[in-house]
Amino acid sequence: MNKLLTLYQRLFRKRLAYKTVFDPAKLEVKIVLADLAKVCPANPARGTGAPIDEKKVFINIGRREVLNHILAMTNLPDEKLNALAQEEEQ
């Protein structure tokens, strides 16, 4: 039970750290998340050319995995991320 509690405490602390660093209420965070949304495409084939470059697809998948992890740790839904990206463009 003690190991489980310690694991929960570590995960809680980690999630709190992500929420602190990636707080979407901060202007700087909005700018960074909007930029990451552009660099980490939801469609991994985007920007890979024709014919599709498999290496670029795998790079895009890896990039999106990082963004998805940040969003999961902060509970930021895709809709909010898209809104931040649109705000950045205006």
Rank of each mutant, 00 (worst) to 15 (best):
K56R: 13
K55S: 08
M73Y: 01
I59D: 15
K30C: 14
L81S: 09
P77F: 00
L76Y: 03
A72G: 13
N60H: 11
A50T: 12
E88F: 15
E89G: 06
P41D: 08
D23T: 01
L67E: 06
A25K: 13
L36G: 12
I52Q: 11
E79D: 09
I61P: 01
V32Q: 07
E65Q: 08
E88S: 04
N75I: 00
A72H: 06
L81C: 09
K26R: 15
A50L: 15
V66L: 14
E87C: 03
I59C: 04
L81E: 04
L36A: 14
A37C: 09
H69Q: 10
A72D: 12
N60F: 10
T48I: 07
A34Y: 07
E87F: 08
Q86L: 13
A42Y: 06
R63Q: 11
L33G: 00
E87A: 09
L81Y: 09
V29E: 13
D35Q: 14
N60V: 10
E28V: 04
N82I: 00
V39I: 04
D23C: 03
L84T: 05
I52H: 02
A85I: 03
G47V: 01
P44M: 08
L67T: 13
I70H: 06
I61E: 13
F58S: 06
A45E: 15
L84K: 07
K26T: 08
V32I: 15
E79S: 04
N60W: 15
E54T: 05
V57A: 12
I31P: 00
A37Y: 14
K38P: 00
P51E: 13
V29Y: 06
A25I: 07
G47S: 05
L71P: 11
V66N: 03
D78A: 08
V39R: 11
K56C: 02
H69G: 10
Q86H: 03
E87I: 07
E79W: 00
E54L: 11
I52N: 03
A37W: 14
T74L: 01
K26W: 06
N60C: 06
A45T: 12
